[in-house]
Design a protein around this nucleic acid. Structure first.
Length: 567
DNA sequence: AGTTTCGGCGCC
DNA sequence: AAAGGGCGCCGAAACT
């Protein structure tokens, strides 16, 4: 068996590689090559490359035009395995894993570097790590055994494979970039914000709106300063706790309209304005740095450029190359469909077994056809809504879909009690109770400052029905959401992996991924094939992730020249 | 002066 | 109507 090969950078600037046996141990002599590209090109029969870090090796391979079909990312796997073993927070590097095996001192993880505009620093200039091939292989073989000790070894193996595939996709997307028309972007900015003034101050439209706000208050008010706005309202006899839009919008005061408009445009100016364009767009591409597995739930994050928060109006600047198209694909009602698949609630599975609008079907069954109420109820159940209409709606949902609601309720209880919860494939929520708040906060767990529970200053935290601390309740909501959002991320990774394989024989490139949405940039004549590939990838991902399930995962797809035309 | 936190809002 | 989950980003405010 030579389908798996390990690869490490060598001290002399070359690379070492060697075949692995079924036990994950070395199954042949170590070869030297001048670089990774030479090593990979010379072994087309290798099905999976095992390496320390995709971010370390793969960008250089891509730069020389070499792609690999599959990989196994040791450090990504280490992170997932440590999480599953309830050892969140321990160093995740391959060197640390090796030290744990040998009982030596465990080196801390190197600090993450922030991205600089346009430079892709952390991906393209990774720190050189020289781990002897034999050491890497030792860690790999041990990880194989640790997979066997998880609750569902097959799922865990699928998860580490999927996470590794995600690392490949992220590196490829970072290289491709999102097609971006600076000219269209400037036109949109000018339409919305008006002319820029010399000196970098507010553009014309913002200055006008600020004047309107001041005029309405009868004194100079800076709408971008919450404290100033709250004071101005107070002087007008209106008490507001914050200047959040939902709190301001309903007020009866002439300043409200220009203020709300100002905040909307101000946001675009500071977050996606001219300086953003200058910083992040070059040669017709926006190049954010996608980071697979960047959140505890498995969702990706981007480093720099706010790529996952592009305002809808700005999407007009995402324009395909001449003769090319953007295939924009959006999973329909992904989270409730995932909830159906993981909870196996008969009613919800039946509803999710159709491709038609799931919220409409839910509302027909439990909400007398009120789709809006049904959607709020489902999202409330997933997010842990605790008050308002949501509670009443949750009761209706529970009557019709008891197993689905029980599933998230059980996750919430586990979170409150400090137990671990996992996604369908085995990604594990960081521990809460038992760990110190500092450690929990480092791991991304919400830890509110206020404690109102009975456990304050009285030893280990205990779950008391109906009287959990603010802290524990927040953890409950976190865990409730984690199982759904995280299992959805499991499925999305498999979708990406499958779609990437389908695109391998085409000119088509994955250029964007946002939780439940993908964009493929391709020649016009490939567009229909890409649409088909997305549907097939969604079906395959559903079967691979959840096994036999009636749940369908339909996509809304659009073939467009401009992202904004996809909605 | 440099660094961290906060408020607000963009996306899912 | 009320304000639940995950993120990143920016400027201002609050600190060292």
């Amino acid at each position: 068996m030579t389908d798996r090969w390990a690869l490490v950078p060598a001290e002399d600037g070359g690379v070492h590689s060697a075949p692995l046996g079924p036990d994950g141990l070395l199954a042949g002599p170590v070869r030297w090559a001048a670089d990774a590209a030479e090593a990979v090109r010379g072994r087309p029969e290798v099905a999976r490359w095992v390496w320390r870090s995709t971010a370390e090796v793969y960008p250089r391979l891509l730069a020389t035009g070499v792609r690999v079909e599959r990989c196994y990312d040791i450090e990504a796997a280490e992170t997932l395995l440590l999480g599953h073993e309830g050892r969140y927070g321990e160093p995740r590097s391959a060197a640390a894993a090796l030290a744990r095996l040998h009982g030596g001192p465990v080196p801390p993880d190197p600090p993450q570097r922030a991205a600089e505009p346009g430079s892709q620093s952390s991906l393209f200039e990774p720190q050189a790590v020289h781990l002897p091939l034999a050491d890497l292989v030792e860690v790999y073989a041990d990880q194989q055994r640790r997979h066997d000790r998880t609750a569902y070894p097959e799922r865990m193996r699928l998860l580490t494979a999927a996470e590794s595939a995600g690392m490949l996709v992220a590196a490829e997307m970072n290289r491709a970039g999102l097609p971006w028309s600076a000219e269209v972007h400037r036109r949109v900015l000018h339409e919305l914000l008006g002319e820029r003034y010399a000196g970098g101050g507010e553009p014309r439209r913002l200055a006008e709106l600020a004047d309107e706000v001041s005029a309405a208050f009868g004194r100079r008010v800076r709408p971008d300063l919450p404290a100033d706005v709250i004071k101005a309202f107070a002087q007008a006899g209106i008490k507001v706790r914050s200047t959040r839009r939902w709190e301001i919008e309903s007020l009866d005061h002439p300043a409200v309209k220009p203020l709300v408009e100002y905040k909307k445009l101000y946001r675009i100016w500071v977050a996606h304005g001219w300086s953003w364009l200058q910083d992040w767009v070059r040669d017709g591409r926006f190049r954010p740095e996608f980071l697979a597995g960047g959140t505890v739930t498995g969702r990706w994050v981007t480093n720099g450029g706010g790529a996952l928060q592009i305002p809808k109006v700005i999407r007009r600047a995402v324009v395909a190359d001449p003769g090319w198209r953007l295939v924009v694909a959006d999973a329909d009602q992904m989270e409730p469909r995932v909830l159906a698949a993981i909870s196996r609630d008969p009613g919800l599975m039946e509803v999710a077994g159709r491709e038609s609008d799931l919220y409409q079907s839910v509302s027909d069954r439990a909400f007398s056809g009120d789709r809006g109420q049904a959607k709020l109820a489902v999202l409330g159940a997933v997010y842990g809504q605790t008050s308002g209409d949501g509670l009443k709606n949750l009761a209706a949902l529970r009557r019709r879909f008891p197993k689905a609601v029980a599933y998230v309720d059980e996750a919430a209880r586990a979170g409150e009690e400090g137990r671990l919860v996992r996604t369908w494939l085995g990604r594990t929520c960081p521990p809460a109770a038992g760990a110190s708040d500092d450690a929990a906060e480092e791991a991304g767990i919400p830890v509110p400052a206020a404690e109102d529970g009975p456990s304050e200053g009285s030893g280990p935290q205990e779950w008391v029905p109906g009287y959990a601390s603010t802290n524990a309740r927040a953890r409950g909501r976190f865990a409730r959401n984690f199982v759904v959002q995280g299992s959805a991320a499991d499925w999305a990774l498999l979708l990406l992996a499958a779609l990437r394989q389908s695109c391998a024989g085409m000119a088509a490139e994955l250029v964007f991924f946002q939780h439940d949405e993908v964009i493929v940039h391709c020649p016009e004549e490939e567009a229909e094939a890409v649409v088909t590939a997305i549907r097939e990838a969604a079906d395959l991902a559903g079967r691979l992730t959840f096994g036999e399930t009636p749940v369908r995962f339909p996509f809304t797809t659009a073939v467009v020249e401009c992202y904004a035309d996809a909605k």
